[in-house]
């Protein structure tokens, strides 16, 4: 294969595969599909999304409907996961609860991601004093133990599911900010960033147009660690009574309202407990697979 060249340029510049290229996203999805824990984790994530989206169509009973006649029924044909102390169907509640998991995962991670990227890039682009101030702020936030930070934010805003989400999100900001700053500083020294400077690009264009895309893979990888943690933290807050409030079928909140019946009816705790365990496991597996697939050594 040779390339057309204008007179004056002599040699053809070598050959490149001319077959049509698949886009990056499709390539990544295909690799995920071939990855073992990617398949399992992906399936888990898909199930959570389906439950969250179509929960109200799937549930056999209304998740909030109290039925004192059928309280604390063990798992059986009519109630696959059994019923709780108020006779509510546990399967329905678990399915319904998925939407809170998703909500918490997406919103709190988005807050952490957005805030962290903003602060990190501000520090790098501003440099000097801006950098100093931003990073001192981040250091102060990181100096607080994670739980204490959460409690402080919730104390300020009052307990609710929204508060828990916001708190978990805010608590995640300094981690992202640190990562973004570190990655951006090392990318900024690369020659291709210099090349943009030579062409006349300003700080804003370089930061958003060149540096941000370069650190995106690292951010995705970090998110794959952070998101399961965020979900778990929010559940823990609900369990402590600081997040979602009963009778909301949030899994953490379900655990706490039923835990005194554990001795007589194990399933009231098993249903939401397993739901939390399996979804966190699924998210982690999916995250692992994503990291493998995005790792430059594998591409």
């Amino acid at each position: 294969m040779t390339h057309q060249t204008t007179p004056g340029t002599l040699a053809p510049a070598g050959t490149v595969d001319h077959r049509p290229r698949r886009s990056g996203l499709i390539r990544i999805l295909r690799r995920l599909a071939r990855h073992r824990s990617g398949r399992i984790g992906g399936a888990a994530v898909l199930v959570i999304i389906l439950m969250a989206a179509f929960g109200s169509l799937l549930v056999p009973y209304a998740p909030l409907k109290i039925d004192m006649a059928h309280r604390l029924l063990p798992p059986g044909a009519s109630h696959w996961f059994g019923t709780d102390e108020l006779g509510r169907d546990l399967l329905s509640r678990v399915i319904f609860g998925a939407r809170y998991l998703l909500l918490v995962g997406v919103y709190s991670t988005a807050i952490a991601f957005g805030g962290g990227v903003l602060l990190g890039l501000l520090a790098v682009a501003g440099g000097g004093w801006t950098d100093m101030l931003v990073m001192r702020l981040v250091d102060i936030m990181l100096a607080f133990p994670y739980v204490l930070l959460l409690l402080a934010i919730i104390a300020a805003l009052g307990p609710s599911l929204t508060t828990a989400m916001v708190a978990v999100g805010i608590a995640g900001i300094p981690g992202y900010a640190r990562l973004v700053r570190g990655e951006a500083l090392s990318v900024r020294e690369r020659e291709y960033v210099d090349a943009m400077r030579v062409l006349g690009a300003g700080t804003l264009r370089i930061t958003l147009g060149t540096i941000l895309p370069s650190i995106l893979p690292a951010l995705v990888i970090y998110t794959s660690y952070v998101m399961p943690l965020a979900v778990l933290s929010a559940s823990a807050l609900s369990f402590l009574g600081l997040g979602a409030q009963p009778p909301l079928p949030e899994w953490g909140a379900m655990l706490v309202s039923s835990r005194s019946f554990l001795a007589t009816a194990w399933w009231v705790v098993a249903a939401p407990g397993m739901a939390i365990f399996l979804s966190i496991l699924g998210l982690n597996l999916f995250g692992n697979a994503l990291r493998d697939v995005l790792d430059p050594k594998h591409s």
Binding site: R190, A195, M196
Partner: peptide
Amino acid sequence: FQDPYASLDPH
């Protein structure tokens, strides 16, 4: 630039 690998934005 000297280095044709480092001087092009891989993304």
